[in-house]
Every structure is written in C-alpha cells, then in structure tokens.
Nucleic acid binder design. Structure first.
Length: 345
DNA sequence: GATCCGTGGAT
DNA sequence: TATCCAAGGAT
C-alpha cells in the first residue's frame, strides 16, 4: 500500500487544521496573514531553541520594539542585553543588522532568495519566512522535517550526508498552496508526535504511509553520527566591587558570548583553560565556583571577589550598580557567577 | 564538510 | 548524573 506525496500532504494539512499549536507568532485560523516581522523574529529566536524558552523573549522584544523599523533604530547594546540568556548571541548581532537592512529596503523582501541575503537567515529561515509570512512555495527543512522525512521514507544514510535526499523528498511533499501551513504542520508533527525518542505513532496522521513505522523501529531514524566528548575547562572570573558597584567588561564581538557584557575573566576559552592570574593585586577572596555547559565544552568558573580594593581596574569597562545588576544583560554563565558572589558576600 | 556558537528541559 | 537535543547560521 503506497500513499502518494499529494495524499501525505493532504493528510498532514487536515491534521494541522485540527491540531495546530496556538503560538504567539502565528496567525489564528481565519486571521489574515501573520506579520512578517513577527514571523522573522520568532524564526530567528527559535533557531536551536525551544518554544518555551522563546515565548518570554518574543513578548519582551515586541514590547520594546513593536516594529522592525523601531528595532532598526535601537542601540546594539540594548538589543544584546535583551537577548541575554537566550544563547547563540551572534543571532542578536545579526538581528539588528538585518532589521536595519530591512528598514533601508522599506520592508521585508518577500522572496526566498532575497530573504536569504539578510544576516542570520540561512536556508531554513529564509524558506520558512517566505512560506509562512508570504505564502510562497518554499522547501522548509529543519530538524523536525529531517526526522519526519527520514522516517516516512526510512532513509538509512546517516546525517549529514542524507540531507540531499531528505531535501529532495521534502520538495516532493511540499504542496504548491499552503506551503507555510505545510511547513508548520511538519514542525508541529515532529515536535509533538514524531519525536526523537519515543514517537507517538498511534496519534500520527501519517503512520499508514510511514516506512519506518512499518519496519517497527521508527526511532532508529534519522541515523546520526556519534558525538564527540566535551572537554573540561577551568577559568577564573573577577568580582571587583567598589562603592556598591561592580566592574563589568564587554566581550569581543566574535567568539564565545561575543559582544556580551561580562565579568572580567582570565581568558578561558573552549580550547584552553584560563591563565588564573588576577588582573590586579589585592586581598582576593574565593567565593566558590560555578559549572556551566556550552555546546562544545564544560566550564568550571572560579569566582574571586575583591571588595573596596585600592587599585583601579586595569581593563576597559564600567562600574555597574549592584542594585541594578539584573539590567546589565549578563549571559547565563556570568549571571550565575554574579549570583554566587552576591550570595557569599 | 567540519567546527564553532548557549541554554534549559526531558529522559 | 549523563546525555540528548531544540524552528540553524557563519566561517
């Protein structure tokens, strides 16, 4: 028994009409098309990030910057601070650049190729915005689509080599109309039914057409390469306080936590430990250490405090009032370190 | 193609 | 606790 690609698309769209998630950036059924600004902003936030994590940030960004033109006029520093905690900070840097490009253009481009030129929009996001915001037919392939397609056709070639085949199959499935709904339906299915570990095949509208289901072990697909172990790194951070303010620095624009406000540290990276030398002489007190897991390294960061020392901080930075530290926009690692320093103060 | 780039929740 | 992994992009 074989279902045609048109059958599969129709089954999925019918399922979506009944079970679509109600998400803040989506148009409600019957509403006019969604706001391209909302679609773009949500898609960038959702890159490698869960819906639950995105929701409060999406609301905050819309409250701060209700249109792409307003966002384009925002200082980089404010946008970076608002992004703090969401991770992958190059997204925030590119977000501002893209907003300014869109403002200069007088609005969002509506075609996939033009969207693809905006910073921060790769193959996936350009296709998603073209399809969802502008109703264009575009082949939208994210990790959900990869998983669903790999299972539907029991594609046994491991990732990433299988991507060419997966894209070809996804192209065949993508309908000429409702491409945006189709893409979101695939993602809802992948996120709620065709999940990575224990897929809910009994609830799946495509189970009758699924080759992996027929084989009996759908969770075997897609085949993934083994992961590398994360190295363990050690670093030190310096909590320098004077007159109720702490000395904060700005990290370099590229690299880990690039462009973010931070505590001074000893130069740790994912590749090597920090040097461990305090930036100035004084009576340092060890507060303790925080553990943090990045994509490709684990870090133990020791936090040392120097309160009301004699010397001025030797590196560029700014005094930040302790009672307003939550507005500094510290990424999570340094927010943890600050919390530790305050708790042991 | 391989590597770098965060974070928090689920299992 | 350890591991996986989530609406990926840039280099």
């Amino acid at each position: 028994m074989t279902a045609s690609t048109a059958d599969i698309s129709a089954l999925l769209l019918a399922w979506y009409d009944r079970h679509a998630r109600d998400l803040p950036w989506r148009a409600r059924p019957g509403d006019p098309a969604p706001d391209p600004y909302h679609v773009w902003l949500s898609e960038v936030m959702l890159q490698q990030t869960t819906v639950a994590a995105v929701k409060p940030y999406f609301a905050k960004f819309l409250a701060n910057w209700p249109t792409v033109e307003v966002l384009a006029a925002a200082p980089d520093e404010q946008v970076m601070a608002a992004w703090a905690g969401l991770g992958y900070y190059s997204r925030a840097r590119n977000l501002v650049k893209a907003a300014r490009a869109v403002a200069d253009l007088g609005g969002f481009p509506t075609g996939e190729a033009e969207l693809r030129k905006l910073p921060g929009l790769g193959d996936y996001t350009a296709a998603a915005v073209a399809a969802i915001a502008f109703g264009r037919r575009a082949v939208v392939v994210d990790a959900n689509v990869e998983r669903v397609v790999a299972r539907l056709f029991a594609i046994g070639e491991p990732l990433p080599g299988a991507r060419k085949t997966i894209r070809a199959r996804a192209d065949e499935l993508t309908p000429d109309s409702r491409a945006g709904d189709f893409a979101q339906a695939m993602m809802d299915l992948g996120s709620g039914i065709c999940t990575s570990r224990v897929p809910k095949c009994l609830l799946c509208p495509l189970s009758g057409a699924c080759a992996a289901r027929a084989e009996g072990e759908p969770e075997r697909y897609p085949v993934k390469p083994a992961k590398k172990a994360k190295p363990e790194r050690v670093g030190n951070a310096w909590w320098i306080v004077k007159d109720g303010s702490v000395w904060l620095v700005r990290r370099p624009a590229t690299g880990m936590l690039g462009g973010m406000r931070a505590l001074p540290d000893d130069g740790w990276t994912a590749q090597r430990d920090g040097v461990g030398e305090p930036p100035l002489a004084g009576d340092w007190r060890l507060c303790g250490a925080v553990s943090h897991v990045f994509t490709h390294a684990r870090l133990t960061l020791r936090v040392h405090a120097l309160v009301d020392g004699e010397s001025a901080p030797p590196m560029a930075g700014e005094w930040w009032p302790l009672d307003a530290l939550d507005t500094a926009g510290l990424p999570t690692l340094y927010a943890k370190a600050a919390r530790l320093a305050l708790a042991t103060g």
